[in-house]
């Protein structure tokens, strides 16, 4: 589904990703772990098409297409979804309008008819259950004044509505209490199908108790320094990241 080959990227002229290679197949869950500043979030944003990063080398192929050639909105229409680490507040646009606009764009891209607001409410009734959210929040402005937990649940709600092929969850566990974490993780699990894939970006092992990965990759200083199965996450929990990092000064 997704093949990343020797990807390098800069932010503000500074190299962040220094040669990432990763293959994700349908049905798989990949966890990307690593210390702060290792480039995890950058990788997630580059996949989603954030214009603030400059890809300087390598390739990303998604479903046989050159992903890097596609605008962010086209990537989303083709089934890529990024759950943001910091979901953006958009005062003045209701959640209902936003979700329906997004839903219809994706339908249009697939040659399907758009749905009207009433039909959409029916669809939403089911989706809200996935993340245990109340219908009232549909009338609120997108993320405006939401608590940290509500914002993350809203991300998963959007994911439930858009039904992506490839979901990238960027630090979705950060700032969540245990109940919210459970709801969010269960939401992700409910949306899992054999024909879609998930990349979970996280600093801590905690989320992986709920969303069990098939593969774990450790990203450090812009490179994947170790890959393994789910047991690697447990080892990281126990030993931290230091043992995987280059000795101090080696990269200077």
């Amino acid at each position: 589904m997704l093949t990343i080959t020797n990807l390098t990227a800069n932010a503000g002229g500074k190299p962040i990703l220094k040669g990432i290679s990763l293959t994700v197949n349908a049905g798989e869950v990949h966890a990307i772990m690593g210390p702060n500043g290792s480039g995890k979030s950058t990788l997630a944003q580059v996949i989603a098409g954030h214009p603030g990063y400059e890809v300087t080398g390598g390739s990303v192929t998604y479903e046989g297409q050159d992903l890097l050639e596609l605008e962010a909105e086209v990537r989303a229409q083709q089934g890529i979804f990024l759950a943001f680490q910091y979901p953006v507040e958009i005062p003045g646009v209701s959640n209902a309008y936003f979700l329906r606009a997004a839903y219809n764009e994706v339908r249009k891209a697939h040659g399907e008819d758009e749905v009207d607001p009433l039909e959409f409410l029916d669809i939403m009734a089911k989706k809200l259950k996935v993340v245990e959210m109340d219908e009232a929040m549909l009338q609120r402005s997108v993320n405006a004044g939401f608590s940290g937990g509500e914002k993350k649940r809203n991300e998963i709600l959007q994911m439930a509505v858009l039904e992506p092929k490839l979901a990238v969850l960027d630090e979705t566990d950060s700032g969540l209490d245990i109940d919210a974490l459970r709801i969010v993780a269960e939401g992700v699990n409910k949306l899992k199908r054999p024909d879609n894939a998930t990349i979970v970006v996280t600093h801590y092992q905690r989320l992986l108790n709920y969303i069990v990965p098939d593969f774990v990759h450790v990203l450090a200083q812009g490179r994947i320094v170790r890959s393994g199965g789910k047991e690697l996450a447990l080892e990281l929990e126990e030993r931290g990241y230091d043992w995987l990092l280059e000795p101090a000064g080696a990269s200077a």
């Binding site: 954030h50 214009p51 909105e73 989303a76 979804f81 764009e105």
Partner: peptide, 19 residues
């Protein structure tokens, strides 16, 4: 905010209009 909306499939013109 523009990137957020685009990342949900909403095109550039509509994103600008909505924001």
């Amino acid at each position: 905010a523009q990137f957020y909306m685009k990342s949900r499939g909403i095109g550039a013109d509509r994103t600008r209009a909505l924001l």
